[in-house]
């Protein structure tokens, strides 16, 4: 065993990359859930974003166009969910799962012509001077653009939810849709926009996998990342900052366990492989056991059907 082979700086840098797809998807789902919508279709939207982004990036030769298309693709798919749950008042849990099923199938159908192709590469930013700073340089200033986009999104979502009127309306709709409706807010419209934002973010997360992190297109390539994103939102107790923490914790343990394996750590591999899941649970238990922290609970109207009966 040679633990000195693990370079902590590189470790942090790669956990940021590893966590980015789940972070993107989770921050989108956070907004949807804040508005009171539980969309279990994240996996389906991610994989749809993965193929839309891949296909457009290959056709246009531009990764930026790819990411744009991924966000649009994810948002369009989420619109199916939005129409079903908001206008036809269907059950959100079942509709979300159906969306995952549909998204997995639909993406493979689109993707049939894109197997074994290499997408145009996305350059690292490599900010001059800054990336040369020891320790901080490689961690903070030597990534591709999407890593920063994801971080900026988290910050933006945090700020909007906390400081703006939009955020207030969104939270009001999620906490008590009847009261929000009585105050004259368009509950359905707010939720629809939140759902589409969630879909767009999930699409970006998927495209990050297919265009940067892997990069290739293969059926089912998200391999459960959407489910982890859902868990991270719960883990973050519906707060943007904690979602970031959760995504980096999960990504970090995943990367660390592979590094420990590579260094020949004498812990049975099965336990190392389980560790990201177990540690996430353990941290959540510790956080939720601390009773001094108020209200870890979900938005009060999460998953409930809204119908303006008055």
């Amino acid at each position: 065993m040679d633990l000195s082979a693990i370079n902590p700086i590189l470790l942090v840098a790669s956990l940021m990359v590893a966590a980015t797809p789940i972070l993107l998807a989770a921050v989108g789902e956070l907004v949807a859930e804040k508005a009171g919508v539980l969309n279990l279709g994240v996996e389906g939207m991610m994989i749809t974003g993965a193929i839309c982004g891949f296909a457009i990036a290959v056709e246009t030769g531009s990764p930026v166009m790819g990411f744009l298309a991924a966000a649009i693709g994810g948002a369009l798919l989420s619109l199916i969910f939005g129409v079903l749950t908001q206008y036809l008042l269907s059950n959100q849990v079942a509709t979300g799962l159906a969306l995952t099923l549909f998204g997995l199938g639909f993406s493979s159908l689109i993707g049939q012509g894109y197997i074994g192709i290499k997408p145009p590469s996305t350059e690292k930013l490599d900010i001059p001077l800054l990336s040369d700073i020891p320790v901080l340089g490689p961690i903070l200033f030597n990534h591709d653009l999407m890593v920063y986009v994801a971080l900026a999104l988290v910050a933006a979502v945090w700020a909007v939810l906390k400081f703006t009127r939009t955020g207030l309306i969104l939270r009001a709709v999620g906490e008590n849709h009847d009261a929000a409706h009585a105050l004259g807010y368009k509950v359905v419209r707010v939720r629809l926009l939140a759902i589409m934002f969630g879909g767009g973010c999930a699409g970006l997360g998927g495209a990050y996998l297919s265009l940067i992190r892997v990069p290739q297109w293969t059926e089912g390539m998200t391999a459960g990342a959407g489910w982890i994103a859902l868990a991270i939102v719960v883990f973050g107790s519906w707060r943007a900052g904690r979602v970031l923490l959760g995504a980096y914790l999960f990504g970090g343990v995943t990367v660390l366990q592979l590094n420990l394996q590579a260094a020949g750590m004498a812990i049975p591999v099965e336990y190392l492989s389980m560790s990201p899941y177990l540690i996430t649970i353990a941290v959540l238990v510790i956080m939720s056991a601390d009773k001094s922290r108020a209200a870890l609970s979900a938005p009060a109207c999460l998953g409930r059907v809204f119908h303006a009966s008055s």
Partner: peptide, 25 residues
């Protein structure tokens, strides 16, 4: 150095495993 991925196919995990190995030399 052998890393057991416990999967035949999970591109993201394979990428992480390769990165971990490369970073360790």
């Amino acid at each position: 150095s052998v890393v057991w991925a416990y999967t035949w196919f999970d591109p993201a995990k394979e990428a992480d495993a390769a990165t971990a190995l490369i970073e360790q030399g």
